[in-house]
């Protein structure tokens, strides 16, 4: 089996690329897959923190590319999941330290030994983006249900199509059902209406995400997190399984349902 290289990108910053990459990596590893995560955000590395591996970094991506370390030496094994590895970004350099061709070479070295290689793409559409996308077999575009994030996602999809990597599949992150129902937030339909690509997952806003990222334990490791559940389902869809989408809202009482019937509006 050859690994599938999946790049997680967004255009806009702060929509949840790194959180998504970390959680999908954890979810895939828990489903028994061999996974390597590559942090392509050179100069602004984060993925190691979200995974709780910051203090284990010895070598990084740039060390591999410039020949100071072998790939195996730079791969950090996760604390509890034996088949999850991280190749951290360098913190002291910038995006130009690595070329798109370097990334292709690196990914190809890993393909034989892995099932999935996930690449965490930096924000923006410049060199860092091109580096991260170059080796991709599939691209996941993370966006939030707000106009500026969707606009940037649209730009990214256009660029992916130009690189023949498109159109990719969409992860709609930080969705608040309550606000959609009131018409204050774009619904999944509004977003696909503009972007015209398939959604692979809808991740609800979840107060567990921030503390879990801070402590280095992605929410997917928690049993009762709705966001964790959503990431788990996306991982299964990446593996080719058909998994139904979670309902946007948790089940509520009969009165609530009745309220929705009479003038709740179209969520």
């Amino acid at each position: 089996m050859m690994a599938k290289v999946v790049t997680v990108t967004s255009g806009k910053g702060g929509v949840g690329k790194t959180t998504t990459t970390a959680n999908l990596g954890v979810a895939l590893a828990r489903l028994g897959k061999r996974v390597t995560l590559i942090d392509a955000d050179i100069g602004l590395r984060n993925l190691d923190i979200v995974l709780g591996l910051e203090n284990r970094i010895v070598y990084d991506l740039v060390d591999i590319v410039e020949g100071r370390a072998k790939l195996r030496q730079a791969m950090i094994k996760h604390k509890t999941l034996p088949e999850l590895y991280l190749v951290p970004a360098a913190q002291t350099r910038d995006k130009t330290a690595v070329s798109p061709q370097d990334m292709v070479t690196l990914a190809n070295q890993l393909r034989q030994e892995m099932d999935f290689i996930l690449i965490d793409c930096p924000a923006g559409i410049e060199r860092g983006f091109r580096n991260a996308v170059a080796p991709a077999d599939e691209v996941l575009i993370v966006t939030n249900p707000e106009v500026s994030a969707v606009r940037d996602a649209d730009r990214i999809i256009g660029l992916l199509e130009a690189e023949r990597k498109g159109p990719g599949r969409l992860i709609l992150n930080r969705v608040k059902a309550e606000m959609i129902r009131k018409g204050e937030m774009l619904s999944p339909d509004d977003v696909t209406d503009i972007l015209g690509i398939k959604i692979i997952g809808i991740v609800p806003e979840d107060e567990y995400v921030v503390p879990s990222s801070n402590s280095g334990n992605p929410v997917t490791l928690m049993e009762n997190s709705r966001a964790g559940k959503a990431f788990h389902n996306i991982a299964r869809r990446l593996m080719g399984e058909k998994v139904p989408f979670l309902p946007l809202e948790e089940k509520r009482g009969f009165l609530h349902q009745l309220g929705r019937l009479f003038g709740g509006g179209g969520a």
Binding site: R151, D154, R155, I157, G158, L159, E161
Partner: peptide, 24 residues
């Protein structure tokens, strides 16, 4: 094709787009 955000078409003649012209 659809013109996504950031794409521009300039023409000294007419322009016909078979697809959408997205915001941006």
């Amino acid at each position: 094709r659809t013109l996504r955000s950031g794409r521009t078409v300039h023409s000294r003649g007419h322009v016909v787009i078979y697809g959408d012209v997205n915001p941006g």
